[in-house]
Design a protein around this nucleic acid. Sequence first.
RNA 1: GCCGGGGUGGCGGAACUGGUCUACGCGGCGGCCUCAAAAGCCGCUGGGCCGCAAGGCCCUUGUGGGUUCGAGUCCCACCCCCGGCACCA
Length: 824
Amino acid sequence: MVDRYDATSIEAKWQARWESDRLHHAPDFDPRPKWYFLTMYPYPSGDLHIGHWYAMAPSDSGARFRRMQGYNVMFPIGFDAFGLPAENAAIQNRIHPHTWTMENIARMRGQLRSMGAMWDWDREVVTCDPAYYKWNQWFFLRMYERGLAYRALSPVDWCPKDNTSLAREQVVGDDRVCERCGTPVVKKNLEQWFLRITAYADELLDFSGIEWPERVRTLQENWIGRSDGVEFELPVADHPEASFRVFTTRPDTAYGMTFAVLAPEHPLVDPLTAPARRAEVDAYKFKAARESDIERLSTEKERDGVFIGAYAVNPMSGERVPIFIADYVLLTYGTGAIQGVPAHDARDFGFAKKYRLPIRVVVAPSNWDGGALSQAYLGEGTMVNSSPFDGLPSREGWTRIADEMERRGVGRRKVNYRLHDWLISRQRYWGTPIPIIYCRDCGTVPVPDADLPVELPMDAEFLPTGESPLRRHEGFRRVRCPNCGGDAERETDTMDTFIDSSWYQYRYLSPQDPDRPFDPRPGAYWLPVDQYTGGVEHAVLHLMYTRFWTKVTRDLGLVPFGEPMLRLFNQGVILGEDGEKMSKSRGNVVNPDDYVSGMGADTVRTYLMFIGPWEGGGPWNSRGIEGAQRFLNRVWSIALDSPGSEIGEKGTASNGHEVRELRHWTHRTIKKVTDDMAGFHFNTAISAMMEFVNYLHRARDATAGTEAWHEAVRTLVLLLAPIAPHVTEELWQRRGESYSVHQQRWPAYDEGLARAETITLVLQVDGKVRDRIQVSADLSETESRDLALRNEKVRKFMNGRPAADVVVVPGRLVNVVTGRRGAG
RNA sequence: GCCGGGGUGGCGGAACUGGUCUACGCGGCGGCCUCAAAAGCCGCUGGGCCGCAAGGCCCUUGUGGGUUCGAGUCCCACCCCCGGCACCA
């Protein structure tokens, strides 16, 4: 009796064999239908973490399943090799980021190979390679030409620990901290490069044609934050030249405006402030400027502000209203100014209360008695105090007032987005240099394509000072202007590393291509990505940027589609044994190598997929993994130790029933596992195989040696192959089948056989289960009903009452209703 | 506050378009094997009550209602947990 198999030697052997046979290379042109299966590439942090396994092993199984189903599957891998950790490690350990990164990549390649995944290493991409980032620069220049990349002075979020600016998407949480290091960010005014992602805001809101999780779609929708409204102009009384615009989503409430508010930084504040109000206004501005964003944005804080001593004119009513400044109005959203309508806006209501400003109802709630409101009314209602619009439903008032503003030329319909342009400048060393040269005479000059890539100098001093390290590298910085040949300076900031990952899926098509970012010929076959998998933490980062990038790529004429990935799946997060997020400081980090070396990669893979739904993640359990190992050992012994294992013996009369049942089990397991694998329900696929194995154990004595037994075991090995690729390959070979199990066709099932011959019929009386009987699966409705009514237990619980109704669900249950509870 | 996702045994989790709640695994208990242990194998394992036992009865999917012959699943109200967004005008 073989109880265990030797995972270590089996796994090493097959990994080497697959590699030398190039079993995992996906040819670019192939008669099979293609399937581009992509998993988010790892950052080369140094060691393969169990989280990498959880992201990658199941996706490998999904890719293997597709391949067995007859697809030509491309399953590439690479490294997201630029980024801050390399630089930080470099500073700490006095090692060059390039060295650190490449050493990590070398180690991780080995660890990745130990997983036994079907990656096509020929397509490997490493983003810190100049041959890769050259194309970041090339894309950047194309965007620059189209006005999609621009430089602007703007208040940006700055991480004081990482010493760099950040994109808005990289500032997270209530306390506005750096996504990388958790340090609260501060505002800085800097000249920075931006990509005009807002130009695609509406298109990014359109998810038609792609199957992405609701969760990600909602996150992106909220992030983009479209709001439809009207922007209109308010003249300033006694300042004939002055006027300012406000944005509102509630033009229906325009007659309810009793004040106006400018952001403290609004450019009109100074010119409009009355001399008598100057001191107070300046004091408020000073205070607002000093406050951090966190304090300023706190919803707990009472709203305050200062009257500037000027009045605006409501263009609809002609009424004069006082102008305030208040820090609850943000310069960065809309026009940086608002109409104050306290009756219909909660913030304005609080403000009006504090400064005793009039609160005028213009949209009456249905039950309104004409009295004062105790809080702002935000709903719809009937227009009042808004002649000539009184009496209209407010919904109609919205349209009519918007129309009227447009007719009079004082306002127009406007869409605003919360989304801002993507800030890509980073004042760090380890990234793609931005290919721009500043010339005293010619101004901003793009680096000519012929001079790409602008290479990162290897001899830079990369200490973070808040200034790009490249700035202090004279050899890099000082350059001749490509236009006039005069003295010029390079841009010394580098690009956000999210640019690298915005298009890496295309580089996998031709990773060595020296002439273009990717070769369109294999692209026509492989693109777009059919299935993408990765963590949801990138919902408004990578997953939004890559959609944007693809739309730009389309507009450059490089691809004929606008969405990079047709299907997206977000796996969950694997937690420590204590149920908490794994972290070194908590000491609950699980090292996959410890388990791989002892139990084998197949066991780790099986366990990770069995632990629960892939999207759910969950705590690691070092006892639980033993269950996965027991299962594989049971498969091993079933597949190799069948008593009387002369294959080909027919079923005999004495075991005819058992053989039929065995075939039924085989086919229903194929059906179940096929359906589950297609939907990434690995946990239930594995449990179905466990049940099958348990059954085979019981059925072995009666059926071993029959053709059906042979089919059953062969099927089991095939079904398990995507999950546990090594042990199944070994079993396949030992059973005398031809190499490789992974090139076999996925087993097909017979519907008829998958259906059970006999089923358990549940007998209920008044909805309560009273008996269960074994009956033929095709028992008719009438027969089921008669059987139920004659049943001893059913009769007992009917207790002499007549059956008022009998509900029969064929093949499932019979419910005898005695009419005690209102039926009949 | 708004948006999204969830609450099922001691634990991870199953449950098709409403039809046997708790599959599969972990843990636990008992047994076989063994000098012993490990491994393996077999059996039991939601809660309560009655019974010496065989067995029987009742309850149970966060809480409370509702629809239905029948609800973990559908509807209403509420509680709690996770994730995201948040003076966005």
